[in-house]
Amino acid sequence: MNSFFKYFSDIFHGVKSLLIGMSVTGRYFFSPGQIVTQQYPENRKNLQMFERFKGEVIMLHDENNLHRCNGCGICENNCPNGSIEVIPARITGEDGKSKRIIDKHIYHLGMCTFCGLCVKNCPSNALGFGQEFEHAVFDRSKLTKVLNKTGSSIIKGVE
């Protein structure tokens, strides 16, 4: 008698638990707005990333194409993956002294793990993170970038 009773109560509880679960899925089925997080490719036009988002390392330039990098190479030493190569050059400054400037600041995006050490340790805050995240390319060499823009120079007063 007891097992007979248990048999039916098991069936009853089983069906009840399934119905409880289905009430949850049913609720979301009829209110799909609660389940969608983002509709990514559709919202590409007005997609705003967070300001601190680490998309890629960039060198900050102002509107006159001036940056703050003096080619000291600290970022290169701090990078754990060798993603940065700093190639400095020497010029003669206005006061006649020889001065180090940046010739090429080469950045290998494909080797970067976005640890943030280069940005944090740059003594003159020349680097920052860009918001671009669609980095897929067909040719790996496109992932090697020169961060200081052509024709750019260092802001006066930053050494």
């Binding site: 793990t113 976005f114 943030g116």
Partner: peptide, 17 residues
């Protein structure tokens, strides 16, 4: 999202130093 706003990354943060 909370992480992305504070640390800049969603998954591998390297936030502590």
């Amino acid at each position: 999202d909370i992480w992305e706003e504070t640390t800049g990354s969603r998954f591998l943060q390297s936030y502590n130093c």
